[in-house]
Amino acid sequence: MARSVLCVDTEERIDEVAAAVEADESLTARTATTVEEARETLDAEPIVCVVTAYELPDGTGLEIVGAIRDIAPQTPCVLFTDVPPAEIDTASFEESIVEYLNRDLPDAHDRLAFVANDVIDYSAQASFIRPDDEDERLETLAQYDVEDLPIEDSFERLTDLIASHFDAAVAFIGLIEEEEENFLACHGGDLDTLTRENTICTHSMLQEDVMVVEDIMQDARFAENEQLQNLGIRSYAGANMTASNGQVIGQVCLLDHVPRSYDAEEQAELEDFADTAMEILELRQTVRDAERTEVAQ
């Protein structure tokens, strides 16, 4: 399926930009010539990447970046312009990241489609750390048919036990997928999914040991995270669910609405619970695989 790239530029230049994008057959250009038109298109259509000029009739390319942040925050953006970075007013957009491609460079138009594909393929503007072996990790995760396995009741019982054991407000089991965390069971909260940039598990999964954040308001990685604040989360402890090949596919976590610490014994116990959750998942998958083999024979 062709990828829709929204190209935003002036009437005089828009055809040239769209042609440069469509030089790659996998990309389809949608066009807009104003900030307003771009905003409407973002609202109405599934756009996988935006390529925008800086100077537009009713505003700037960074206002498009603002619109992306409001409407489709995961969508990458390429600023394709001959305006030097020093002359671009970033005052209201200090923490928005865009790809800057100088259209005056000799190979700029040739590179545009390559860059657009690259930022799409690699989620290159992701605001979370991605392990270098992420592809292998996702392949491992894909081996588990979590949607089909009868694990929900088991995991619900387990999170009830975990919350009770630690006297924690919330206990959950979540799998870390490519773009979001999928919560399989949760005691004390109504969690379904969260984008990875908004979860503490995104960081916790990279640690070998249990990760404890005693007070998220005192940690710059999480203090500005509105999603966590809206959920009333103040403290966190997470342990890895590690597959037999060593890849971390999920987390077993505790949340509380007050600052809180966990001693070494408690952290070891949380690891035990994470290992138990992993064993349940492995066993259910093994049974499912055996059943399928039997049917096939």
Partner: peptide
């Protein structure tokens, strides 16, 4: 840089988008 910004997520975005990406390409 990390000490100057409010939200570490923007630093990760900067590293992903502007530092590691250049090396990959």
């Amino acid at each position: 840089v990390a000490s100057e910004i409010d939200d570490t997520r923007s630093l990760y975005r900067f590293l992903n988008s502007n530092f590691l990406t250049e090396l990959r390409r």
